[in-house]
């Protein structure tokens, strides 16, 4: 599999863990994080793959190499930020694949292809559907 260039916006736990796995699999990863302390923590885990800055700022995305990215993942804890990142990635920079995290399930309806989002996922929703499956299996098993 050819290595992908992946740009992750949001260097919290989810962004860091995703980046770590992608790097281990041989992909080129850059993480953008605006909070200095979080960026510091991400940098110590991921060394030179972290750019500090606001990923909603087109200049920061450019500096982080969005023009060469095959995939952009908007993984911040703020739905508005993730939507802005997705929209900029698709409509301004023409990125092929855009993933976005939904934090508040009430906002899920906003994460559409029209806004640049190919795949929206809600971590809380994923966990609860796994739980539901487990419970259902226990009930039938």
């Amino acid at each position: 599999m050819r290595p992908l260039r992946v740009l992750i916006v949001g260097g919290g736990k989810l962004g860091r863990e995703s980046a770590r796995r992608l790097v281990a699999a041989g992909h080129q990863v850059t993480v953008v994080e605006k909070d200095p302390a979080t960026a510091q923590a991400a940098a110590s885990a991921l060394s030179d793959h972290v750019t500090r800055g606001d990923g909603c700022d087109p200049r920061v995305l450019e500096r982080a190499g969005i023009a060469q990215a095959n995939v952009v993942a908007a993984l911040t804890g703020d739905d508005e930020d993730n939507l802005v990142v997705a929209e900029l990635a698709r409509r301004v920079f023409g990125v092929e694949h855009v993933l976005a995290r939904v934090n508040n399930p009430d906002n899920e309806w906003l994460f559409t292809r029209q806004r640049g989002v190919d795949l929206a996922f809600n971590p809380a929703g994923l966990v609860s559907s796994l739980l539901e499956q487990e419970v259902a299996r226990d009930a039938t098993g």
């Binding site: 909603c56 508005e80 939507l83 802005v84 906003l110 806004r115």
Partner: peptide, 15 residues
């Protein structure tokens, strides 16, 4: 006072 909120709210009002 949030640029991102303003942009998202405006784009959903339009679209």
């Amino acid at each position: 006072n949030g640029d991102n909120t303003n942009f998202v709210a405006a784009s959903l009002a339009v679209e």
